[in-house]
């Protein structure tokens, strides 16, 4: 299973490098890492997808707090969230196959954003599963190039994500599995 973590970090030079270096140093395997601006110009937001072996997500969270520039980390896995990935897919098509690809794109509510004599570029935004579904159907035509942004995620409504680590950066843990005492 995968875990999706959101990290709010100070928007300062070198912070992405610190996070990446931490992952390398601690031997964490990251599926995807996306960094972007937020409503606050002083804060950037990272969406980090990790393979969850053992208590990986918790360990990644706790280690992120070792970085002075990391403000908050929440685990969105199994919470009500909206997640999106954006892909550009260049597909090999001749005039005859083009219509089929356009058709598929329509079904997926994807867009054709470029048409050349022997290829088209399909743009799709959605969940990982949706993108993977389209990729699978486009593969037989021949995918010439593909780029994906990696996941971004946001909680629905005002529900918070899970914080596994009690006391980190002044946050209380809301993961009640922290103690095994009954």
């Amino acid at each position: 299973m995968q875990h999706t973590l959101i990290a709010k970090v100070e928007n300062k030079p070198g912070v992405l490098n610190r996070v990446a270096s931490l992952f390398r140093r601690r031997n964490f395997n990251i599926e995807s890492l996306n960094v972007g601006q937020t409503e606050n110009p002083d804060i950037s937001r990272m969406t980090i997808v990790v393979e969850n072996k053992g208590n990986n997500a918790k360990i990644v969270e706790a280690n992120l707090y070792k970085l002075v520039n990391v403000i908050d980390v929440q685990d969105l896995t199994n919470q009500p969230t909206v997640t999106r990935d954006l892909a550009l897919i260049k597909v090999k098509v001749d005039a005859i196959k083009r219509a089929e690809v356009v058709n598929l794109a329509n079904i997926f509510r994807a867009k054709i954003v470029d048409v050349a004599s022997d290829s088209v570029i399909v743009e799709i935004a959605g969940t990982e599963e949706k993108i993977e579904g389209l990729v699978e159907l486009l593969s037989p035509f021949g995918i010439l190039e593909m780029v994906r942004t990696g996941q971004v995620a946001m909680m629905r409504g005002d529900s918070p994500g899970v914080r596994h680590t009690p006391g980190a950066n002044g946050h209380q843990s809301n993961n009640n599995k922290n103690t095994k005492v009954n």
Binding site: N55, K58, I59, T165, P166, A168, T179, K180
Partner: peptide, 15 residues
Amino acid sequence: PSEIDKNVEVDVPLV
């Protein structure tokens, strides 16, 4: 907090 459960899993973490 990154030391909690790093090497030895504990029953009660007091950070």
